[in-house]
C-alpha cells in the first residue's frame, strides 16, 4: 500500500467511523466505558509524566535564564511552555503509546478471531460498535487529561522553584499569572482535541485492517503508535502555525 492510498484509506475509515447513525441508546454505554478506560486508566501514568515535566522544565528554565532576567520570568516561561506545548504533546504521546496500541491489538485480535465478521453477520455495524466509542472516548478523555497534567506540571514546577531554587511561590505565580493568555490555554486544548482524533483513529484503523495472526496483531499495534505519534507532531506544527503563527 503506497502512502497516498494509505492516507485515502485512513481518511475514509475515519469518516466512515464517525459519520454514521450513532444509535446513542446502545452506543452511550460503550462510549462511557472508553472514557473510563482511557481517562481513569491513564491517570496514574499521566500524573507521573506531568510531575517530572514540570520539574525538568523548571530546572532547565532556571539554568538558562537566572542571572539574565528577573526571577518571575521562570514562572512565565514554565507556564507558557507547559500550557502551549509540553502539556498537550506529552499527554498525547503517552496516551498514544498506551491506548492506540491497545485499541489496535484488541480490534486486531477481534479481526483474526472472526469477531468482527460475527458483528457484521449479526447486523451490527462494526464501525459504530468498535470504532466510534473509541474515537469519541479519546476525544472526551484526552483534553481532560491534558488539563490535569498541566495543573500537576505547574504545581510541581512551582514547588520545586520554591524549595530548591529560591524562587518563592508568589514570584513564580506572579510570572505565570501576569503573562497568562487565554489563547495559550485554549490553543493547547485545541491541539489536544486534534491529537485525540488521530490517536483514536489510528488505533482503530490498524486493528481493523489486520490480516493473518498474532504477528500481524503485534505489528498493527506498533504501526498504530508510530502513525499516531508522527501525526501528533505534524498536527502540533500545523495547529501552532494557525493559532500562534
Amino acid at each position: 500500500m503506497n502512502l497516498f492510498s494509505l492516507i485515502g484509506d485512513f481518511s475514509s475509515f475515519f469518516f466512515r467511523s464517525l459519520f454514521i447513525p450513532w444509535k446513542i441508546r446502545t452506543t452511550r454505554g460503550r462510549i462511557l466505558e472508553q472514557v473510563f478506560n482511557i481517562g481513569i486508566g491513564s491517570l496514574p501514568i499521566i500524573m507521573i509524566i506531568a510531575a517530572f515535566t514540570g520539574l525538568v522544565s523548571t530546572v532547565q528554565t532556571t539554568y538558562q535564564l537566572i542571572g539574565t532576567v528577573p526571577r518571575y520570568i521562570v514562572g512565565t516561561t514554565v507556564g507558557r511552555m507547559v500550557l502551549i506545548e509540553l502539556g498537550p504533546i506529552l499527554t498525547a504521546l503517552m496516551i498514544s503509546g498506551r491506548c492506540a496500541s491497545s485499541m489496535a491489538a484488541e480490534i486486531g485480535s477481534m479481526r483474526v478471531t472472526e469477531q468482527i465478521d460475527a458483528l457484521e453477520i449479526m447486523a451490527i455495524d462494526p464501525y459504530r460498535f468498535l470504532n466510534l466509542p473509541r474515537i469519541v472516548g479519546t476525544f472526551i478523555a484526552l483534553p481532560v487529561l491534558t488539563v490535569i497534567s498541566e495543573f500537576i506540571a505547574l504545581g510541581c514546577g512551582a514547588l520545586y522553584a520554591n524549595y530548591f531554587l529560591n524562587i518563592p511561590f508568589s514570584v513564580f505565580n506572579y510570572g505565570m499569572i501576569h503573562f497568562f493568555s487565554m489563547r495559550d490555554f485554549l490553543g493547547g486544548l485545541v491541539k489536544s482535541l486534534f491529537f485525540s482524533l488521530v490517536i483514536g483513529a489510528s488505533g482503530c484503523y490498524f486493528g481493523f485492517i489486520v490480516k493473518g495472526g498474532a504477528k500481524e496483531v503485534g505489528r498493527a499495534a506498533t504501526y498504530a503508535v508510530v502513525t499516531a505519534s508522527i501525526l501528533i507532531l505534524i498536527l502540533d506544527f500545523l495547529v501552532a502555525l494557525v493559532i500562534f503563527g
Binding site: 477481534m110 478471531t113 472472526e114 469477531q115 465478521d117 460475527a118 457484521e120 453477520i121 449479526m122 447486523a123
Partner: peptide, 20 residues
C-alpha cells in the same frame, strides 16, 4: 436491506467468534 436479511440468520462460526 442486507442488515434486515442478516437479522433473520444465525451464524455459528467454526472458531465460535464469541466476544472474549
Amino acid at each position: 436491506e442486507i442488515y434486515n436479511i442478516r437479522k433473520r440468520i444465525g451464524f455459528v462460526f467454526q472458531g465460535t467468534a464469541l466476544f472474549d
